Amino acid sequence: MSARLRLLAVTTLAVLATLIGGGVAGAHSVVTGSVPDNGSSVATGPAQASVTFNEPLQSSFATMTVVGPDGNLWSKGDPTVQGQTISVPVGELGPTGQYTIAFRVTSADGHPVSGTRTFTLTTQGTGTPGAKAGGSGSAGDEGSDGVPLWPFIVGAVVVFGGGLAFALRRPRDKG
């Protein structure tokens, strides 16, 4: 086997290993529970809403909101992360109906995880709502799941193309 073919084979295997090798690290944190429970009905709202995961979370960039059936924010203040749980103060709720807990956290492996949980308030409360929810800042409205994949694909193609060009180049005639 010539040196060029060996180099081509090694380059191809390296690129394939880079692209395929991420499968094991692909497991992210998963929700194991929430307060209130997902889909539950409650007569009075909790003092705080929380979501618990199967592994510890990173505290950086964590967001969590509680949005009522009126489209207003009912969460009060910033979320806190303690171990496997993210929580946010809620306070007295208002209108009856479905409330949505939206969250975005960074798992222990560095990947962002986002989602929603819901609960229904069955008895009208007397709380005062926050601002209207919406816009690009709420946790449940993110269109991306974190770091885009395309730069890694472009990088792999460039590395592969460079290795292929190097392996297939013809030596210059010395003459």
Score class of each variant (00 low, 15 high):
G26Y: 15
G26T: 12
G26S: 15
G26M: 15
A27E: 09
A27P: 09
A27H: 10
H28A: 06
H28F: 09
H28W: 10
S29L: 01
S29T: 05
V30H: 15
V31K: 13
V31S: 02
V31A: 10
T32D: 00
T32K: 11
G33Y: 03
G33R: 03
G33T: 02
S34R: 06
S34K: 12
S34H: 00
S34T: 04
S34F: 13
V35D: 07
V35G: 11
V35Y: 00
V35A: 08
V35W: 03
V35N: 12
V35S: 11
P36G: 03
P36Y: 05
P36V: 11
D37H: 11
D37K: 15
D37C: 09
N38P: 15
G39T: 09
S40I: 02
S41V: 14
V42W: 02
V42T: 07
T44H: 13
T44R: 15
G45S: 01
G45F: 10
G45T: 02
P46I: 10
P46S: 00
P46V: 06
P46W: 03
P46G: 05
A47E: 09
A47K: 12
Q48C: 13
A49Y: 02
S50Q: 11
S50N: 03
S50G: 12
V51L: 07
V51M: 03
T52A: 06
T52V: 09
F53L: 01
N54V: 05
N54S: 07
N54P: 08
E55N: 04
E55I: 00
E55S: 15
E55L: 14
E55M: 08
P56W: 05
P56C: 05
P56D: 03
P56Q: 04
P56K: 10
